[in-house]
Nucleic acid binder design. Structure first.
Length: 506
DNA sequence: AGCACA
């Protein structure tokens, strides 16, 4: 019979199909290139590219079976292999008879875009791609899209980026969503009001659905951004290039139940913030679901584990100010350990701080690990401002104020606190430095404090005393809060990474 | 380099 008794190790004996399976494609491969490849052999009626975990497989469907056979036969005997962009492509009959679920070459325009960040290291992109200084470049020099305002991204990144360098485990789990998300919001808002965004992770990297008002807006964004390569200089050197791939989604209205770190509904700022949104898999130290019984609060209870180093009021203030203005802090001893109550003006900020910081250590090396829960308090009563408790909302005449009256939140007195005098080395340098801005400490635990500072506020902490609270943050927030074309971004919309600014929304 | 589906 025709049984060729083929060798078992290779399966050349796929039965013919109108559909061909291609592999070893360059991941940038487009449908157009697939059509070009198949056109000499017949009419390509459908394609599907960027298939598989590496996005390097594809399917071509011919109108007629004989055309598929012609293509297979040709390349089976050709000395020139099939190629796309100079890369050899391997062909075989697909084990299916038609391509399913594909947008034909003319995919239907809709108001929702499916955005994929393609690339071998796509999942790393959102961590590393958006260097603070470079985000401006992304927009201002037109590498991705022309845009005049970039405050939002910049602010977000200033908070989140240095954290990634600390390689906190939990951060790796949810920070990408956050950054990716804000990046997308930022870029796509240039084309019109973004109603909703959902992001999700796939094996190949990140995807997002971006919902515009109408298909026209979506189309303009798609045509401007599809295929854009995220500029090389934005990537860490060990990250391979990544591309934005944009198609139309079949969705017309995304279902966003919560404002979370992976989904936002900008049409409904009153949508509840999902406390579970980022702890779905990100938290490891405390119970996941059992803990949700705890009602959210604007006041956090922090307990500090493994406290090898002193944790001062100022350190806490610094750490927690990264998420919004800290109104009050009260520290106290309990069960032989240190605890603190940190009060924010709103629940959202507290949620963000809690979700972000929970389980993390203030100092490298696993020291001073934070455990956070919601307090039942809503307004702390601070009797006296001292080194254990402070009300930052009341003016303090004794304070050293680097930027007076810029924020409702006032800096702690850098000179008055006991910590300020721990640095004896400042005196010799005082001729060069402002007295209120001693040089950065080096070595010892002070440097680990600095790590915390950079983690929270990289910009302003880069040249300030680590104990000085972030009152010197560049005042770019007004621009951030009114995104062009955006009616108003809820605080939580800041990719979950609210800079330490006053938020008067919600 | 070996078969898809936000």
């Amino acid at each position: 019979m025709a049984s060729v008794s083929s060798q078992p190790q290779f399966r050349y004996t796929q039965p013919p199909s109108k559909v061909l399976h291609l592999r070893n494609l360059p991941w940038e491969c487009t449908e157009e290139e697939l059509i070009e490849l198949g056109k000499p052999f017949g009419k390509v009626v459908n394609t599907k590219c960027n298939v598989g975990a590496n996005r390097n497989q594809a399917f071509i469907e011919f109108a007629d079976l004989n055309q598929a056979i012609a293509m297979i036969s040709y390349y089976a005997s050709s000395s020139e292999p099939a190629q796309v962009r100079g890369k050899t492509v391997y062909l075989q009959y697909s084990n299916r008879q038609e391509i399913v679920n594909n947008k034909t070459t003319a995919d239907v325009a809709g108001n929702v875009l499916l955005v994929t960040i393609e690339g071998q290291d796509a999942r790393l992109v959102s961590i590393d791609v958006l260097h603070l200084d470079h985000v401006k470049g992304i927009i201002s020099n037109g590498s991705l899209v022309h845009r005049e305002k970039e405050n939002m991204c910049v602010c977000l990144l200033s908070l989140t980026l240095p954290l990634s360098s600390l390689l906190f485990l939990t951060y790796l789990l949810f920070l990408p969503f956050r950054l990716c998300f804000s990046f997308l919001l930022h870029v796509f808002s240039a084309f019109g009001f973004v109603h909703k965004i959902t992001t999700f992770e796939k094996t190949a990297g990140f995807q997002a659905l971006v919902q515009f008002s109408d298909a026209e807006t979506a189309t303009s964004a798609k045509s401007a951004l599809d295929g854009r390569i995220i500029p090389r200089y934005l990537l860490s050197e060990n990250i391979s290039p990544c591309t934005l791939r944009i198609t139309y989604s079949a969705h017309t209205d995304l279902s966003v139940k919560f404002q979370s770190h992976r989904s936002r509904d900008y049409t409904n700022p009153y949508l509840p913030v999902a406390p579970s949104a980022i702890d779905g898999s990100g938290q490891f130290s405390l119970g996941l679901d059992g803990k949700k019984l705890e009602p959210e609060s604007n006041v956090l209870l922090a307990s500090i584990e493994n406290m090898q180093y002193a944790v001062t009021l100022d350190v806490l203030h610094m750490v927690f100010s990264a998420f919004g203005p800290v109104q009050k802090i009260a520290m106290f001893d309990k069960n032989g350990g240190l605890q603190a109550l940190i009060q924010y003006p709103d629940v959202q900020t507290a949620v963000l701080a809690k979700d972000t910081l929970e389980g993390h250590c203030i100092y490298d090396g696993g020291f001073c690990k934070l455990h956070l829960s919601y307090s039942r308090h809503t307004d702390l009563s601070i009797k006296v401002n001292n080194d254990r408790s402070r009300d930052y909302t009341i003016p303090n005449p004794a304070m050293v104020n680097l930027q007076p009256s810029t924020l409702g939140q006032q800096p702690v007195q850098a000179m008055g606190g006991p910590a300020a005098h721990q640095y004896n080395g400042t005196s010799y340098a005082s001729g060069l430095q402002q007295p209120t801005m001693p040089p950065q400490p080096s070595g010892g635990w002070a440097s680990t404090v600095l790590a915390v500072a950079q983690q929270s506020m990289p910009v302003q902490m880069s040249n300030h005393h680590p104990y000085v609270p972030p009152s010197s943050m560049p005042q770019t927030n007004p621009g951030m809060m009114r995104m062009p074309g955006q009616g108003g971004v809820p605080p939580a919309a800041a990719g979950g990474a609210m800079p330490p600014y006053r938020s008067n929304q919600m």
